[in-house]
């Protein structure tokens, strides 16, 4: 853990895993949807999120994150009212997601354009999170580094296409992971990079045949 994993996060209490981590999970879903505040959110709480989440404000923290709030936003405790004001409908259910980390939430979003997103993420402690499923595919990334998420059909050549585009911007790849459901099926490329990528390059990527969605999430902004 680095020095600022020990000191920090600056956060609204009471729990770094159940409150701050939950805000970050909600915010990650908000950013992955990539079109502002969703109009509808269906949230499944699992494990200890379901058991003690209410007392820790996990529910309000997730909604706050979905509205785009950060861990230190004092409006977190009033996020239900904020959601109503922003026109975001939400519903909670409690289901045990077998095999997942004890602090896990599954979030299904519908955006204003009708775009949908399904994300499952776990709060690992100290406010750190990991996305473990995206639109039905198993993945694993934290969002600690700037992260590029490319959804595509599993066809040969896409890794090269994407890395070519990144190289043109002089962007260095830190890690690259591929996930797919079956050969030739849906696939996700999760690429952690050292710096942000330009909007123009994102559009170049989107234009590549077989690529269905491209999302960029910058590093977790810090206090």
């Amino acid at each position: 853990m680095n020095l600022f994993d020990i000191l920090g996060p600056v956060m609204v209490g009471p729990s770094s895993s159940h409150t701050a981590g939950a805000v970050r999970i909600g915010r990650m879903a908000h950013r992955l949807l990539d079109e502002g505040t969703p109009v509808r959110a269906d949230i499944v709480l699992s494990g200890s999120f379901a058991a003690t989440g209410c007392g820790h404000g996990t529910d309000r923290a997730l909604v706050a994150g979905l509205l785009g709030m950060q861990t230190d936003d004092e409006r977190i405790k009033d996020s239900f009212a904020e959601a109503a004001a922003c026109g975001m409908a939400y519903a909670f259910s409690r289901v045990n997601l077998a095999g997942e980390h004890p602090n896990t939430a599954k979030i299904d979003l519908v955006g204003a354009s009708g775009r949908t997103l399904s994300m499952t993420a776990s709060s690992l402690g100290g406010g750190r999170i990991a996305v473990v499923a995206l639109n039905g595919l198993r993945v694993r990334f934290s969002g600690d580094l700037p992260t590029l998420i490319v959804q595509n059909r599993d066809l040969p050549g896409h890794v090269r296409d994407v890395s070519d585009v990144l190289a043109r911007d002089g962007v260095n790849i830190a890690t690259l992971h591929l996930y797919r459901d079956h050969p030739g099926g849906d696939a996700v490329m999760v690429i952690e990079i050292d710096k942000a990528i330009s909007a123009q390059r994102l559009d170049t990527l989107r234009a590549i045949r077989g690529i269905t969605a491209v999302t960029f999430v910058g590093a977790q902004e810090e206090e």
Binding site: V10, M11, G13, A20, E74
Partner: peptide
């Protein structure tokens, strides 16, 4: 912290 005000975790909330 318990009342959902902003604090600094050091090392935890």
């Amino acid at each position: 912290n318990a009342c959902m005000k902003c604090i600094v975790a050091a090392p935890t909330a």
